[in-house]
Simulated assay, not measured.
Amino acid sequence: MDYLFDMPTDFKVYKIKRDKSSGSQPTHTHPYYEIFYLINGDCTFFIDHNIYKLNRGDLIVVPQGELHKSSFPQHGCSERYVLCFKESNLKWLNDIVGPDFVKESLSTGVISIPDKRRDYVESLMNKMIFENEGQDILSPAFIRTGLIELVLFIIRCRRYEENVIKELDVDNQLMQQIATYIYENYDKKLSLEDMSDKFHISRSYLSKKFKAVTGFGFKEYIVNVRIKNACRLLLETNKSITDIAFECGFNDSNYFGDAFRHVKGVSPNKYRKNKEAI
């Protein structure tokens, strides 16, 4: 089932501490953007098929609908800002530079904010937290301008600055390769036995390590990747639900329907009909 934060409005921002006693966050998606900025400490962040080791000053953009999970540190604690906003907040920016430019610039990615610019980012976050408490009738305007300024800064970093893009987590390179293979070959037959043979590891090790690193069971991840692509086809094409099921790697349309309801909470047909609400 989709894991959704409580967002009664189109914007939310907060500062939070986490350690191993906080429990594990479930892997989830949500129908809005999220910006995650690590103030101090460290954590592992899994998004779609990529695994990142985040440290102080790292910022990750999580687009709408992307599978992701953060793992809390085993020692000490980490502190982060989390900012969530709906696409409607970007209308002004879309009108100026174009929605395609904005969407591409806010695709999944991790930026290592340079030391000299961290105070600037953290100041913006603190201002939005302050205004989000509802200081006066001008607070919504201050929040909107703060968000746009932060998004513009992120776009500039990603497009025009050098050496700010975070590399993947090399400590989990094998699990990274397996997740990427599944992500790119979701429409094919994928079994634990076949993958263990392909990557020359035991089935038990693959199963346990994949779960520990990504938060997904092996089969669970395959199903979620297939469902994600099925959602895209349901909204962007007129293909039949049966054709979409087979195209996404399901060999039984009934099983596809059950799996879809389990992950999305509605049937494929209802999901397609509710396109405007998604």
Rank of each mutant, 00 (worst) to 15 (best):
D58F: 02
V61R: 03
Q64N: 12
H68S: 05
H68D: 08
S70D: 15
F72D: 09
Q74E: 15
C77L: 13
S78R: 13
E79C: 08
R80N: 13
L83W: 07
K86G: 02
E87G: 11
S88M: 11
W92I: 15
K103Q: 14
K103C: 07
T108A: 07
T108P: 02
I111F: 05
I111S: 06
I111V: 15
I111W: 08
D115T: 10
K116V: 14
K116E: 15
R117P: 04
R117T: 09
R118T: 10
D119H: 05
D119R: 07
V121K: 00
L124E: 00
L124Y: 02
K127A: 14
M128F: 03
I129M: 08
I129A: 06
F130E: 07
Q135D: 08
I137Q: 07
I137P: 01
L138Q: 01
L138I: 04
S139G: 03
F142V: 10
F142I: 08
F142R: 09
I143Y: 04
R144Y: 05
R144A: 13
L147D: 03
E149H: 11
L152A: 10
L152H: 07
F153M: 12
R156Y: 12
R158G: 05
R159S: 11
R159V: 09
Y160L: 13
E162R: 11
V164Y: 02
I165D: 01
K166F: 00
V170T: 14
V170S: 14
N172H: 12
N172T: 00
N172M: 03
Q176T: 14
I178H: 09
A179D: 04
E184H: 14
N185G: 05
K188H: 13
K188P: 08
K188M: 10
